[in-house]
Amino acid sequence: MMPALEVIEPGLMTTIQDLGRFGHQAQGVPSSGALDAGNLRLANALVHNAEGLGALEMRILGPTFKVTAGTVRIALTGTEGGIEISGGPVAFVPAYRSVVLKAGQSFRIGRMSDSAVCYLAVEGGFDLPMIYGSQSTYVSGRFGGFEGRTLQRGDLLPLCLEEASDKPVALCSEPLLYQQSGPIRVVPGPQDDYFDEAALRAFQSQVYHISAESNRMGLRLLGEPIAHAKGADINSDGIVTGSIQVPGSGLPIILLADHQTTGGYPKIATVASADLARLGRMVPGTPLQFRMVSVEEAETAAIALETHLRSLIETLVMPSDEQELLDHLLMSKSLISGPIVD
């Protein structure tokens, strides 16, 4: 029997994502990829994968799976919750720790209390086609990932490995820390000159809220509309993840991973890449403010985040026996939010 994860409950919006599809944006192919790339990389590292392998991105309400054959090593990141397991000796494994499950066992990722997205990686990755070098699902284009769509009940996600390796369990001693609070840092431009000073001030001073009509393409913001000084249409130019476009309504839209490659609305500012995952993790209704920073400051933040992530991945703890594992878990109580049976 083919080793696979069978979808028992699909969750709210579960897709395969990796670090994105690059090199073909000039041909209109969006990059897609994980909204919280750091936690995707960490999840892969915890199951001994290359950091950029395709993994499951789960939104708000997680899925339930059953292991159909062999054994599989999995790890959850991006939430303080954990993996609820049935059919075996261990009933719960917290996030940021890998675990090996056997055929017949099922596991569930519940409702996330602290993030809109979290990630589940499997050792060896999923045996799914690559399109332009990526397994990322682009839902509106109906391609990538598993049949170009969100998971549905009964889907069988094929695994590359029939058995988990004999490598050790891995733990991350602290979760990936994005800047926890404070305004979202943005770099002005490329079309900040389409707005007058009053509009730029209103953009930076008001508290916006994330609309329920937000998805992987973009976050729509609710707030006081801001006025354009030179109209709301431009001849198209290129878009990056984090571009903040202001259409005729005057309400900004922050473009996320599934954004189109080009667009015809003026872009008042661009989110610093170090803050993109914070946005990806925000649920509808979350308040947010913007603070203008320089390109240099945003670049320095990006480099600092990369350094932090590298150090987390390089210092993953791999206990050599059960006792060392137990000791480690007892010492890092902050990561334990459920009973450990082994």
Binding site: G23, P190, N235, S236, D237, G238, E299
Partner: peptide, 18 residues
């Protein structure tokens, strides 16, 4: 430099600040 995207008015250069 990761990739470039030409449009009517500009060339967008995607790069990695690291």
């Amino acid at each position: 430099v990761i990739e470039t995207v030409p449009t009517y008015r500009s060339l967008l250069v995607h790069y990695d600040p690291v």
